[in-house]
Amino acid sequence: MSDAPTEEAATPNLSFEGSTPYEDYVQASVLTHLQHPLSDEPGEMAFLVTTQVMELWFTLLVHEWTTAAAALREDDLPTAMAALRRSLPELESLNASWKPIAHLTPAQFNAYRSALGEGSGFQSAMYRRLEFLLGDKSASMLVPHRGTPGAHAELEKALTEPSLYDEVLRLLSRRGYAVPDEVLDRDPALRYEPHPEVESAWQHVYADADQDSDLIRLGEALTDVAELVWRWRNDHLVATRRAMGAKAGTGGSAGVAWLEKRATKNVFPELWTARSHV
């Protein structure tokens, strides 16, 4: 008797009493009905979908980096590394999201720009949580969310918690590297500022004879994250410059001028400067 599946057995189940299990799990009908263009311009739909996709990537990256920070707090480096490594292709996919917007001509972008009104990307609560995890803290960034108590509470919590990099430096200290108390005990609600002794600590990590040590692998994973964040900021700058030149941004932002300033800043700064001394 043959064990080969019959054609009937290989046919997928197409009959369900209610919605499909796929819909129940993914909730695709919710996602695909969240787009409500405010103009008749075809390009606005591309802008809406692209922006919403970015929000989903922000959500996933916040999940990954929160997982990594919690694992580092418990000295669970394998779990932290797994989360950081997962975040790399996720960051690459986030960065690729700029492509549909980046190739709009100024006229195509301006055709629906007024639909944004006072809306601007810097008002994204999930992106702000992502930036807070990277150590770029600012209490003023909670102000736009005072009218949405849930988002405001989540952001306030993220503001006052140690960032991912704070947890990394605490791990280095527990491993015997000379991270100063003023860094370890700093107010986590403040933006992280580079410190020469932290640079020295990374210099000693990278000078290890074992170039495959777990701390060097951690440093390289963080550097990969930092590089992709830098590319995200630059891709944002280029896409905006192509679409609107030097015009003022929506929501009262300075547009390209503000993005240019952001693009010059690196996250995890001592991981970059320490390389000059190894």
Rank of each mutant, 00 (worst) to 15 (best):
T148Q: 12
T148I: 14
A153K: 06
P144C: 06
V143C: 00
G117V: 03
T148W: 06
G117E: 06
V143S: 05
E156C: 00
R113T: 01
Y127Q: 13
E154C: 02
G119K: 04
S120K: 03
R113Y: 01
E118N: 15
N110D: 15
T148Y: 06
N110V: 00
F109Y: 15
A151R: 10
E156W: 01
N110L: 09
K157D: 09
G147D: 10
N110E: 15
G121N: 04
E131Y: 07
A102S: 15
A151Q: 11
G121F: 06
L134I: 05
A115P: 02
P144Q: 11
K157S: 11
A125R: 03
N110G: 13
R128E: 14
S124Q: 06
A151V: 02
H145I: 01
A125G: 03
S114V: 11
H145K: 08
P144E: 06
P106I: 10
A139H: 08
P106C: 12
G121V: 04
H103K: 13
A125C: 02
A125I: 00
D136M: 12
H103Q: 12
K137W: 01
F132G: 04
A153F: 04
R128G: 02
L104C: 07
S114P: 00
F109P: 00
R113E: 13
V143Q: 03
M141F: 07
V143I: 11
A102N: 08
Y112T: 04
T105C: 04
G121S: 10
L116T: 06
H152N: 03
S124K: 07
R146N: 11
R129L: 07
M141L: 14
L142D: 03
L130Y: 13
L134H: 15
A111L: 09
G147W: 02
D136F: 11
G150C: 00
R129Y: 04
A151S: 04
A151C: 00
T148L: 08
L130K: 03
L104G: 05
K137L: 05
S120C: 08
L133G: 08
R128H: 04
G119H: 10
L155P: 00
K137M: 06
R129I: 01
I101K: 14
S114Y: 08
E118C: 02
H145G: 05
K157V: 02
A111T: 04
L155D: 01
L155G: 02
L116G: 01
S120V: 11
F132T: 03
L130H: 13
M126C: 09
L142F: 04
T148A: 10
G135N: 09
S140T: 14
L134D: 07
S140Q: 12
L134V: 09
S114F: 12
G147R: 08
R146V: 10
S138G: 13
E154Q: 09
T148F: 12
A139T: 03
K157E: 09
L142I: 01
G147I: 05
Q123H: 15
H103T: 15
R128L: 04
R113Q: 13
M141K: 15
G150V: 13
P144R: 06
L133M: 15
S138K: 12
A153G: 07
L142M: 11
R128M: 09
G119W: 14
Q123E: 11
A111E: 09
A111Q: 07
L134Q: 13
E131R: 08
E118Y: 07
T105S: 15
K157H: 10
